[in-house]
Design a protein around this nucleic acid. Structure first.
Lengths: 154, 154
DNA sequence: TTGCGTGCAAAGGTTTTGCATGGCA
DNA sequence: TGCCATGCAAAACCTTTGCACGCAA
């Protein structure tokens, strides 16, 4: 078993505090280190990665990747136990992360467990799609080439 | 407008054919190139990446990352239009990808669209959790807690 | 004092890009 | 022939690791 002492350092506290302040938003390790740097707080990128990995092991942070973003994204889950089961919708266009707490979806988890022998993890399941705003925008550009990806010619 | 000619090359055909043969399984770009190499087929890693990206743009391939695997995984979606709406369950323990086609889940998409103004993309949404096998194994190693979840598997 | 945490530098991977060549239409 | 595709090498990134030093307990 892992019985690391888990010291209480300034950096650790800063990282957790910042992640927590982001709510359900996600951020990359690099952006995080950059933010600290801008704030005059000196935390090495290595430390960010190491703390992040520890937090993941503890289940306090979730790691996932987002289309169009280079590198993994990290999201604070906080104390899951008192958050109730809620899922997240992620808009693949704008990246917006939307909380979703709804009986119908909780019922789905139950259904999947009972009928499909699969235990859903709300905190780790990401519904992917298009939010209303982008949906409308989309039908706007429709035929036009959507260049939101990259194509930085010149 | 995007009117790339999209030439019909040997490599392109080989890649699509191989992806298609994998069914719903996922594979990394590196593994794919390695496989071709073993088969005596010469396709550069660069080409694999480039074709993969093109296929993603066309919606024929999905890219995502799996915990514990280095690098992105690619999965063939085929011709989505005639597959009907189906979702995927991914076991976070063993990585197994399970197809899920079920009225209740389709109803959920409808519900989310109507009540939460969000358009779900079945092909891009990944339900994350634990499959039955791993679930049992887990409670084995674990604290031997409640075993309420040993439902009948199909 | 002990041993984990940190920071720097370097290593290890993955993915992208530049450029000349080859192949499809 | 005109372009796109390919391959190689190199670059650009992201993430991890080694090592010496600092700091919490």
């Amino acid at each position: 078993m892992k019985r690391s002492a888990s010291y209480h350092t300034k950096q650790r506290e800063t990282i957790i505090s910042y992640l927590s302040s982001l709510g359900s938003a996600h951020i990359t390790a690099g952006s995080m280190a950059e933010y600290f740097n801008e704030q005059g707080i000196s935390i090495g990128l290595t430390t960010v990665y190491r703390q992040l990995n520890k937090l993941i092991q503890k289940g306090l942070v979730r790691k996932f990747s987002v289309d169009g973003i280079n590198g993994a994204c990290y999201q604070y889950l906080g104390d899951e136990s008192n958050m109730g089961d809620h899922y997240h919708l992620k808009c693949e266009k704008c990246g917006e992360l939307i909380h979703l707490q709804c009986d119908q979806i909780e019922a789905l988890g139950q259904h999947i467990f009972e009928r499909h022998s699969f235990t859903l993890k709300p905190q780790k399941t990401l519904f992917c799609g298009t939010c209303n705003m982008c949906y409308l925008k989309e039908s706007d550009d429709a035929v036009l080439e959507t260049t939101y990806g990259k194509s930085e010619s010149t």
